[in-house]
Nucleic acid binder design. Structure first.
Lengths: 189, 189
DNA sequence: GTCTATAAGCAGATAGAC
DNA sequence: GTCTATCTGCTTATAGAC
């Protein structure tokens, strides 16, 4: 019997890379097929609901990778703000080099789908919530009370997503680095 | 002689509304044509470079509207931070009501085009710069020195864009309101 | 300047052989 | 489970009548 798990995973891996950079509407099924080297029939066997189902799995995968990256980085530091500044600097470097999105944000697909597909919007919402929770836990463990940690986590999530957007648009990581510096100054931790 | 200016402006108005919410890749030319009530030949007469040229004009128009809104709001306040908080609360209300983008951000089209079209990327970059300059001027006029005003302007731009993204994804303006509160606390102005 | 007809290609999706 | 052929409809764009 053929190994269907590998074929399915290959589709998701390929799709998630393309969706993250080119977006949901900007990526055709044919492109995903070509890149993954499989025929169309196989895709629809593994994803009966077609493109939307493939995107759903892609968003979940992207979320897992983003969360894993963020956790790994924050764990290097005791002070949460130092970890966050390091994280923004890491992303800044990637943008300086690749000038492409890669395991940093699902903002594009979130903006493309929040008004069209409740399934995909909810999936994106969950990823953003998970990111916020990582920040919250780090801040809470450091000693902030529940309310303060929650407020700061929302703030840091928004700031980071915005800085990624601006840095991508400008094709350099300067905004991310400036924002990192600024949050260090403002929070004064 | 026919009034070509009106026809052209009508196209831009229609396109900008659709692009802002549905995105560049998510909006077909046929949809713009149908909504504006004009035939295809007319569009290509006014925009020989097709969709990209239409999008370029749409981004410029969106930028003008966003800037005008922001200026008008900030001018109501002497204290820049109070103006910014009011502005984020305004956007939060719009999201609570409409749950759609409308004169608040070009983030979707920026993320869709930064890697495909240098023309559109540059247009988006200019809009973000203009927004940043509005914040800078307000902060500078209030008494911040040049460097500090610049740093805060970048920070506020990023934070606002990120908060809009998260609020749209969650379909409510809570993040924007929380971020507004938080920036008031952190800057302590 | 305006409008219609149409081209050429790609989109997502499906049927059915193997 | 895999693969091919194909369908329908939409995409951007163009040619040419008026």
């Amino acid at each position: 019997m053929g190994n269907n798990t590998n074929a399915k995973e290959k589709f998701i891996e390929t799709a998630y890379k393309l969706f993250e950079v080119k977006g949901y509407n900007g990526t055709g099924l044919n492109e995903i097929l070509k890149e993954s080297g499989a025929p169309k029939g196989s895709l629809y066997y593994h994803f009966p609901n077609g493109k939307e189902q493939l995107a759903l799995e892609s968003i979940k995968l992207a979320g897992e990778k983003i969360i894993a990256n963020l956790k790994r980085t924050l764990d290097k530091f005791d002070n949460p703000i130092d970890g966050i500044v390091y994280s923004t600097n890491e992303i800044a470097e990637i943008i300086d080099k690749n000038k492409k999105m890669h395991d940093m944000s699902i903002s594009l697909i979130a903006l493309e789908t929040y008004d069209n597909s409740e399934v995909l919007r909810t999936a994106c919402e969950k990823v953003f919530e998970a990111i916020e929770n990582i920040y919250f836990q780090k801040l809470f463990d450091y000693g902030f009370n529940d309310d303060k940690a929650k407020e700061l986590a929302v703030f840091i999530s928004a700031m980071t997503e915005g800085a990624i957007l601006l840095s991508l648009t400008r094709k350099n990581g300067e905004v991310l680095r400036q924002v990192g510096k600024q949050i260090k100054i403002l929070t004064n931790i």
